[in-house]
Amino acid sequence: MASTEYIICHECDLLLAAPVLGIGEKAHCPRCKLHLSTHYRNGSDKVLAFASSALIFLLASMAFPFLGLNAQGQKREISLLESFDILISSDYGILALIFLIMVFLVPLCSLLGIVYVYTAIKLWRPWSGVKAVMKWVTRLQPWNMSEIFIIGILVSFIKIVSLADVNLGLSFWSFILFVLFLNACLMVLDRYQTWLLLRRLYSYD
């Protein structure tokens, strides 16, 4: 099989010769200009480093108060996990579920998967399920909304400021760092390159 000799643009179905990318080079579809692949220097190292950093900050953001409010002498602090509680207790379980999945579970599962896949690549061990995990990581991507949540926080922040003093907790900063690293990781994680590596790892050629 010569699967690696060709690539098909997944938006316009154009058959193309597989790009051989040097460090820092990008490949685009000549017809629809779709970005096909980028070869990053130390790509797999970067993916793993960013993913693990993001994981650390995601877990840290669960542990502390997220936002604090001070209105008319009343102080109130919530952690991220408490906000689920409040939503569930006010009969908005479906919102809590959407929130939980899109802001936490999708990024968490993606990151764990990425760490698993890239550890396997890094150690060059064909562990079981690596491909299935990578498949799910790819599929989950559109549903990751953690960066939108950050914007949501900022908007609500501005909305509340006139009502009360808002203090940002440690979790907030931790969450910001998590989102930054997650996006850095997803940027460096190149689908095409990853599967090329996996193809070699599982000796398909």
Binding site: T4, A18, V20, N42, A49, I56, L59, W124
Partner: peptide, 30 residues
Amino acid sequence: VASPNITTKAKLSSVWLIPFVAVLIAVWMF
């Protein structure tokens, strides 16, 4: 053709400073 530039050598990249700093920051936070 496809993979002359892909390294799998166990060379410690400077990018690993990032998770190291992340751990430090997380530890400091805790």
